[in-house]
């Protein structure tokens, strides 16, 4: 059975494109359009990995991450950031993110990083 990836990204079009890419590479996907939605979905059905946008409405990526780690979840999280959010990367890693990728990203880089954390 394919591994499941939750794409938490408020830009709906980007989320859709990511789904196409990941499905073409044998992953199952789900999407969440804001932080609260992401947390609910993770609680209801824990995915094998979360692609987490830092800037999102309701709860941002950091809040999602903090809440996940506080409740003992060890689901691998890869942050999606813009390069202007460099300090955000440091903060994210400190909060327990496993990796990060900057937008715009190269498909090869995205898939390599995902493969590294989905076991």
């Amino acid at each position: 059975m394919g591994k499941r990836i939750l794409i938490a990204e408020d830009e709906e079009q980007l989320a859709r494109l990511l789904e196409i890419r990941l499905r073409a590479n044998g992953y199952e996907t789900a999407t969440a359009s804001d932080g609260e939605d992401a947390l609910q979905q993770i609680a209801a059905q824990p995915p094998d990995l979360v692609l987490l946008d830092v800037m999102m409405p309701k709860a941002d990526g950091f809040e999602v991450l903090r809440s996940l780690r506080e409740t003992g979840s060890t689901v691998p999280v890869i942050l999606l950031t813009a390069r202007s959010q460099e300090s955000a990367v440091v903060q994210g890693l400190q909060l327990g993110a496993n990796d990060y990728i900057t937008k715009p990203f190269s498909p090869v880089e995205l898939l390599t990083r995902i493969a590294k954390w989905v076991k």
């Binding site: 494109l17 890419r21 959010q85 715009p104 990203f105 498909p107």
Partner: peptide, 14 residues
């Protein structure tokens, strides 16, 4: 600049 990155990412990935 930050607002420029999201559409760029979408364009590129599409």
């Amino acid at each position: 600049s930050h607002e420029l990155r999201t559409p760029l990412a979408i364009l590129q990935e599409a």
